[in-house]
């Protein structure tokens, strides 16, 4: 069990989300940085989609009520355990009573606290993710507050960690080969032209060429981008249709919106593009006020990156098991 001692608003329990219910209007929710969640869980020997705490407002502090193993992935928040520095992406053993503290992120925005066995809240419609808009899932459908206690799942074979823990290389470095580098300080996000791309005429080119700024009106639901307005050559009133996170819609203001994890399941604004799924985690770690640029991608490229990312996660799981298994033999 863990006890929340201090927290800002909008910190929630998240897993990989609730797919399969878009047809009744239920958004998938789930971690904004699903890669950090999968890596954290894989390192601990959990199911890749076990529930964790998604922290996006700081400071955050929790107490472990029993000995366990945990890892903080995603944003680098200068975490500490009873005052001693905890490296991000490093799985560590803790004793009952120890206190984990996260400060303002130095890099990234969202940290994931993964614990052996996962956070064990009751699944709703197949997922433990909190749907803040729907007010269900996670901890009573709301964000965490000080005083909350959360159970963790049973661990069948506890990890035998070395005293210094085991680390995985930050995916921002480990996967640098398959992710484009920043350009002039702007995050480069790959996208595929979507249904109404052709309606934007000459403005479509400016969608790619300009640098967009992530506005303060951005959250788990979506990111509103600021830049030179892009407009369809003629106004279009669409019939409502299903959408997925990553869709880039252009409302009449001409400033693009990227729908994120808690987005509506349907929409009717013209879609100029869709961010490839493997790039969504980088958006999940992008700061309000930071800049980004879109570059065109193909499905073949997206599929290739998808494979590289999956192989990396598999590798983390295998290596962690190997290291801990070897230690068990030595002991």
């Amino acid at each position: 069990m863990i006890e929340i001692i201090q927290t800002g608003p909008f910190n929630t329990v998240q897993d990989l989300g609730r797919p399969g219910f878009r047809n009744i209007g239920v958004t998938t929710s789930g971690a904004m940085d699903p890669l950090a969640l999968k890596i954290g869980n894989s390192l601990l020997g959990n199911e890749a989609g076990a529930a964790a705490l998604e922290i996006q407002t700081y400071p955050f502090k929790l107490r472990f009520s029993k000995a366990t193993v945990f890892v903080v992935t995603g944003a680098d928040c200068g975490a500490s355990l009873d005052g001693r520095t905890v490296q991000p992406w490093c799985a560590l053993s803790v004793e009952a009573g120890q206190v984990l503290e996260l400060g303002q992120p130095r890099v990234g925005t969202r940290a994931y606290i993964c614990i052996a066995g996962g956070i064990d809240v009751a699944p709703v419609m197949g997922s433990r993710s909190t749907s803040l808009r729907g007010a269900f899932g996670g901890r009573e459908g709301r964000f965490l507050i000080a005083g909350d206690t959360l159970q963790t799942g049973e661990v069948s074979s506890p990890l035998n960690l070395p005293a210094a823990g085991i680390s995985v290389v930050d995916p921002a470095f480990a996967l640098a080969d398959v992710y484009p580098a920043h350009e002039d300080g702007a995050l480069v996000i790959r996208a595929i032209p979507a249904g109404e791309y052709g309606l934007f005429g000459e403005d479509a080119e400016r969608f790619w060429s300009q640098t967009w700024k992530i506005s303060t009106q951005s959250d788990r639901t979506g990111y509103r981008l600021m830049g030179d307005a892009i407009k369809p050559t003629t106004p279009v009133e669409m019939r409502s249709h299903g959408v997925v996170s990553g869709v880039v819609q252009v409302p009449p203001s001409g400033e693009a919106i990227i729908q994120m994890a808690d987005a509506n399941t349907a929409g009717g604004y013209p879609k100029i593009a869709g961010v490839i799924e493997v790039d969504l985690w980088r958006l999940g770690q992008a700061r309000i006020g930071s800049r980004l640029r879109f570059v065109r991608a193909t499905h073949a490229q997206a599929a290739e990156v998808e494979k590289a990312v999956a192989a990396f996660i598999d590798d983390v799981r295998r290596t962690a098991r190997l290291v801990c298994g070897a230690l068990q033999v030595l002991n």
Partner: peptide, 9 residues
């Protein structure tokens, strides 16, 4: 038409 990498409308 596609929406991102995995969805088609």
């Amino acid at each position: 038409s596609p929406i991102g990498s995995r969805a088609f409308l």
